[in-house]
Each structure stands twice: as C-alpha cells, then as structure tokens.
Simulated assay, not measured.
Amino acid sequence: MAVRVVLDQLLQDRGLSVAEFSNAIGISAANVAVLKNGRARAIRFSTLDAICGVLNCEPGDVLRWDQTPPDPEVTVAP
C-alpha cells in the first residue's frame, strides 16, 4: 500500500508541460519527474501547497492511496 502522487491527468487537463509546471511551482523538472513517476518518498507541504495553487485543486486531487499490496521482493539464489 502506498500514497501516490497523480499529476499526469491534472497537467494534461490544464495544458501544462512539465517544464511550465516546474517553473510555476518552483522545483526542478527532474523533481517533478520524480513525483510523476512514483519515486518520491515524501512531499513537502509547501510543495503540495504550490501544486494545488498552480493547478487550482485540492490535495486529494493530487494524492491517491493505493491499496494494492506491493509485489514481494524477488530473491535470486546464489
């Protein structure tokens, strides 16, 4: 289970590129990619506030709770 950041559809609906969005919220395009690709381990409230301000949305529009259990780790025998 995990909390996920879902930006793709929000950016598409608003016609924003990653570069435009990153400039508007004040973080690098690389960090926006980390958020979009599900590799973020945390998000600052100030960043979430900026995202919601630029996208004119609520935090619940940006964050989703995924109830799917993670895949078990694959172990390789020596």
Rank of each mutant, 00 (worst) to 15 (best):
T68L: 13
G60L: 08
D71S: 15
R64S: 14
G60F: 02
I43Y: 02
L55W: 08
I43N: 02
R64C: 09
V54T: 11
A40D: 01
R39E: 13
R41T: 15
P72C: 04
V54R: 11
D61N: 11
C52Y: 10
E58Q: 14
A42Q: 11
V62D: 07
G53N: 14
C57H: 08
D49T: 11
P59S: 08
L63Q: 07
E58Y: 04
D61G: 05
P59N: 07
K36Y: 02
E73L: 14
F45R: 06
L48P: 10
A40P: 06
D61W: 08
Q67E: 15
R64K: 15
R39V: 00
R64N: 10
E58P: 01
L63G: 02
P70R: 10
C52S: 09
A42S: 15
N56E: 15
E58W: 03
A50V: 01
A42T: 09
L48D: 07
I51T: 01
R44A: 11
R44Q: 04
R64M: 14
R41P: 00
E58T: 12
A50C: 03
D71L: 14
K36L: 08
C57V: 14
P70M: 10
V62A: 05
G60Q: 10
L55K: 04
A40S: 15
G53I: 01
P59I: 07
D61R: 00
L63W: 00
K36H: 01
G53E: 09
D66P: 02
Q67K: 10
L55S: 03
R64D: 11
R44P: 00
N56T: 07
E58N: 09
V62W: 05
V62L: 01
R39C: 01
L48E: 05
K36C: 02
D49E: 14
D66L: 05
I51G: 06
D61I: 03
T47C: 00
Q67T: 13
T47D: 04
P72L: 11
D66M: 06
D66I: 04
P72D: 14
L48I: 07
V54P: 09
N37T: 12
Q67Y: 13
N37K: 13
E73R: 13
G38W: 05
E58G: 00
E73Y: 04
I51Y: 03
V62N: 10
L48C: 06
G60R: 07
P69R: 12
P59M: 05
L63R: 07
P69N: 12
N56S: 14
P69T: 12
R64G: 02
Q67F: 15
I51S: 02
E73P: 10
A42K: 09
R41A: 10
L55V: 03
N56F: 05
D66F: 08
T47M: 00
N37Y: 12
T68M: 11
Q67N: 13
E58A: 08
R44L: 04
G38A: 07
R39K: 15
L63T: 05
A40F: 09
D49H: 13
D66H: 05
A50R: 12
T68F: 10
T68A: 15
P59W: 04
L48A: 07
Q67M: 13
S46A: 13
D61V: 06
C52H: 07
R41D: 12
R41H: 05
G38K: 03
P69Q: 13
P72H: 10
R39H: 12
V62M: 08
K36T: 08
R39A: 10
T68E: 15
N37C: 05
I51Q: 04
T68W: 09
R41W: 00
